Amino acid sequence: MTSVLVVDDSQFMRTVIGNILADNGYEVYSASDGRKAVKEVTEREPDIVTMDVEMPGMDGIEAVAEIMSTKPTPILMISAHTERGADATLEALDRGAVDVLAKPSGEVSPNIASLSERLVEKVRAVGEADVSSIARTRAAQTASLAGRVAETMGTTETASRGYSYVEHPTVVIGASTGGPKILEQLITGLPVGLDAKILVVQHMPASFTDRLAARLDECTNYSVAEAADGMRVCDGEVVVARGDYHLEVVSNVAGRIRMRLTQDERRHGVRPAIDVTMETAANRVRDPLCGVTLTGMGRDGAAGMQAIKEAGGATIAQDEATSPVFGMPKKAIETGCVDQVLPDGAIPDAICSVFAQEAKSHG
Rank of each mutant, 00 (worst) to 15 (best):
D52C: 05
A63S: 14
R258M: 14
L212Y: 12
I257K: 03
V123Y: 04
L21T: 05
E310S: 13
F208E: 08
R161P: 01
A227M: 00
G327I: 00
T89G: 03
F355P: 00
E128R: 12
P288N: 09
P74A: 02
V149F: 14
E45R: 15
P46A: 06
T280R: 02
I173N: 08
A159R: 10
D59V: 03
A356W: 00
V224K: 09
L194S: 00
A140C: 06
Y163M: 08
I67E: 05
D244F: 06
R242M: 07
M204N: 07
A241Y: 07
A125F: 07
E45V: 10
T70R: 12
V285H: 04
A92S: 14
L90T: 07
T315Q: 04
V41Q: 04
A311S: 15
V285W: 05
T137G: 13
G174A: 04
A139K: 15
S109A: 02
E91N: 10
G25I: 09
A65Y: 01
S105W: 10
C337S: 15
A311T: 08
S160F: 08
T188F: 07
V28T: 11
T70P: 03
D8C: 04
T262A: 05
T315S: 07
M51S: 07
R258P: 10
S132V: 12
A143F: 12
H268A: 02
V250Q: 11
N111E: 15
S30H: 13
E310N: 15
D339L: 07
I112Y: 02
P324R: 01
V64P: 12
K360A: 13
A88V: 01
T142H: 11
G312C: 01
S132F: 13
I198C: 04
P110M: 02
G57N: 06
E66C: 06
A80F: 06
N252C: 15
A317E: 07
V250N: 10
V28L: 08
D47N: 07
R148H: 11
N221A: 15
S223R: 13
R44Y: 03
Y165D: 01
V171Y: 08
K360D: 12
V98N: 07
R124N: 10
I48C: 07
A140N: 11
G230T: 08
I182K: 09
G236Y: 07
R215W: 10
G296T: 01
D23Y: 12
G193A: 15
V98M: 06
A314W: 13
S116F: 01
L93I: 11
C234L: 12
C337Y: 14
S69L: 11
A206K: 10
P205N: 11
A282N: 11
G336V: 09
P348R: 00
M55Y: 03
L90K: 06
L183P: 03
L342E: 05
S133V: 05
D319A: 08
L212T: 13
I48E: 10
T82V: 11
T137H: 11
C337V: 11
I67D: 04
L119H: 00
A175W: 03
G255Q: 06
L101I: 00
R84S: 15
R242Q: 09
